[in-house]
């Protein structure tokens, strides 16, 4: 027994892995443990409970947050934004990948142009969309031109519309990511298969639909998971455009947690919320990835 322990700690493997393990410990385990600890006490500095006075209250915070209407509404809102963004972005990515798969003049110019949004800082994207959708901004003017009458939508202050610029900004900003993933996936389909299909009489669309797309299951799932993880955390766009308003009409999960944490200092409350969101994400993403990536291996 003793021998083994010694071997473990002096073995080269352990020494080589040590720096990475230490970093990992501080980056992952320590914060995780702190958050777990915070989520089961009643630490709320602005409400008169300092860290010294805080006491263990078990699942109290979890019950509080799961019965909080604002939290549940924010959760639902986030799910909707995520779903809309992912579906629209996937559709756009597939469409543009298909259009770019043929021989198109100027592809080498078009391609980098399509990736540009990804390179722009979120603050700039937010500001641009704020200008675009301001009451006297170009969006209202374009709609006016089509409607043949003066239209003045208050995009950011009308609860009916406030989600639209946020969602559009998210789609515009992040669509190149799914496009890159899908385009490279499509490019990886072997030419002998596409040529075989072509010589059997398939046109470009049939090759795309019958040969390329069915091979894309894994890649589509990866694109969905990566993009969803990003979308669920949506914060910057909300912060720049509406700050969750009007009222709580555009409050997403991240924004809800931010507001309660940084404005109201309900530290323990949001720790519980963060845990719930993390758990939901882990369950959904790991099952969806497992179902696609590792299915064949299990047989």
């Amino acid at each position: 027994m003793k021998k083994k322990t010694v071997a473990l700690f002096t073995s080269e493997k352990f020494i080589y892995k040590l720096p990475a393990n230490v970093v990992l410990m501080f980056l992952v385990f320590v914060p995780t443990i702190i958050v777990i600890w915070l989520s089961v006490i009643n630490f709320a500095p602005t409400q008169g409970v300092s860290l010294n006075d805080a006491s263990f209250i078990g699942p109290g915070n979890y019950i509080d947050i799961l019965t909080d209407q604002a939290f549940l509404a924010a959760l639902l809102r986030t799910v909707i934004i995520t779903a809309v963004c992912v579906v629209v972005e996937l559709f756009l990515s597939l469409l543009i990948s298909f259009l770019l798969s043929g021989k198109i003049a100027g592809k080498s110019i078009l391609f980098p142009l399509l990736i540009i949004p990804l390179m722009i800082a979120p603050v700039v994207v937010g500001n641009n969309f704020w200008l675009l959708f301001s009451t006297n901004g170009p969006m209202n003017q374009i709609i006016s031109a089509f409607a043949q009458s003066q239209v003045q939508i208050n995009w950011f202050t009308d609860a009916h519309y406030a989600m639209i610029p946020i969602t559009l900004a998210e789609i515009w900003h992040w669509f190149p990511l799914t496009f890159l993933i899908i385009y490279s996936g499509l490019a990886g389909v072997s030419t002998s298969e596409t040529r075989a299909a072509s010589i059997l009489g398939a046109n470009e669309w049939q090759i795309f639909k019958d040969i390329k797309l069915p091979k894309m299951k894994k890649i589509l799932m990866i694109a969905i998971v990566i993009r969803s993880m990003e979308a669920i955390k949506v914060f910057d766009t909300v912060h720049l455009l509406t700050q969750g308003g009007p009222g709580t009409a555009t409050e997403t999960i991240s924004y809800f947690l931010y507001k309660n944490g940084f404005w109201y200092s309900r530290i323990s409350f949001i720790s519980a919320g963060a845990w719930i969101v993390l758990l939901i994400c882990m369950i959904i993403f790991s099952t969806s990835l497992n179902s696609v990536l590792f299915k064949e291996k299990k047989i």
């Binding site: 072997s190 002998s192 040529r195 040969i211 091979k215």
Partner: peptide, 8 residues
């Protein structure tokens, strides 16, 4: 084709 190219 040489690399066969069956639809996998």
């Amino acid at each position: 084709f040489q690399d066969i190219g069956l639809f996998s």
